[in-house]
Simulated assay, not measured.
Amino acid sequence: MTFPYDRARLDALVADVDARLATVEETARAASRVRMRSPGLGAADLAAISRFANSPDAPRELKDLARRVDAGELSWRDVASGRAADDEGVQRALRTGVPDLRRAYAAIREGEDPEDVVEAGRPRVVGDDEDGPSRFTEDAW
Score class of each variant (00 low, 15 high):
96 T>Q: 06
56 P>E: 07
33 R>H: 12
54 N>I: 01
68 R>K: 08
59 P>R: 00
84 A>I: 02
71 A>Y: 00
93 A>S: 00
105 Y>H: 13
46 L>H: 05
57 D>R: 06
53 A>Q: 01
133 P>C: 04
46 L>S: 08
126 V>G: 14
17 V>Q: 12
17 V>N: 12
115 E>D: 13
100 D>S: 14
31 A>V: 12
19 A>Q: 11
66 A>Y: 02
140 A>W: 10
2 T>E: 09
94 L>W: 08
7 R>T: 14
35 R>P: 06
63 K>C: 00
68 R>E: 14
139 D>A: 10
120 A>S: 08
57 D>K: 09
50 S>F: 01
83 R>C: 02
86 D>M: 06
90 V>A: 06
78 D>I: 03
70 D>H: 00
40 G>Y: 02
78 D>W: 03
124 R>D: 13
84 A>Q: 09
138 E>D: 11
73 E>W: 00
54 N>E: 07
122 R>M: 13
64 D>T: 05
114 P>D: 07
96 T>K: 00
135 R>S: 13
20 R>S: 08
111 G>K: 00
117 V>P: 04
39 P>I: 01
39 P>V: 01
121 G>N: 06
88 E>R: 11
26 E>R: 10
50 S>R: 03
15 A>K: 02
116 D>C: 03
84 A>L: 03
74 L>D: 07
127 G>D: 15
28 A>K: 12
6 D>N: 06
16 D>N: 11
39 P>A: 07
45 D>F: 01
100 D>L: 11
46 L>T: 11
107 A>G: 11
117 V>E: 02
24 V>M: 02
117 V>D: 03
57 D>Q: 10
14 V>M: 01
72 G>I: 04
96 T>E: 07
141 W>E: 15
99 P>R: 04
95 R>A: 15
83 R>D: 13
51 R>Y: 06
12 A>M: 03
82 G>R: 10
55 S>A: 04
3 F>L: 15
80 A>W: 03
80 A>L: 04
108 I>H: 09
119 E>M: 08
57 D>L: 07
30 A>R: 11
115 E>M: 03
61 E>H: 00
96 T>H: 01
123 P>D: 07
113 D>F: 02
58 A>S: 08
109 R>D: 13
131 D>L: 09
141 W>C: 10
79 V>S: 05
123 P>Y: 02
7 R>S: 14
57 D>W: 01
21 L>Q: 09
12 A>D: 04
27 T>C: 05
56 P>F: 01
95 R>S: 14
75 S>Y: 04
37 R>D: 14
38 S>G: 09
138 E>L: 10
131 D>M: 08
106 A>G: 12
43 A>G: 08
84 A>W: 00
104 A>Y: 03
49 I>M: 15
17 V>F: 11
94 L>S: 10
11 D>F: 06
140 A>D: 15
31 A>H: 04
110 E>Y: 06
118 V>C: 04
91 Q>M: 12
54 N>P: 02
106 A>W: 05
2 T>A: 13
67 R>I: 00
43 A>I: 06
47 A>N: 07
50 S>W: 03
45 D>A: 10
82 G>Y: 11
44 A>T: 10
5 Y>Q: 11
115 E>N: 10
111 G>P: 05
10 L>R: 04
49 I>P: 07
49 I>H: 09
24 V>C: 09
17 V>P: 08
110 E>A: 15
35 R>Y: 08
77 R>A: 15
88 E>K: 12
45 D>K: 04
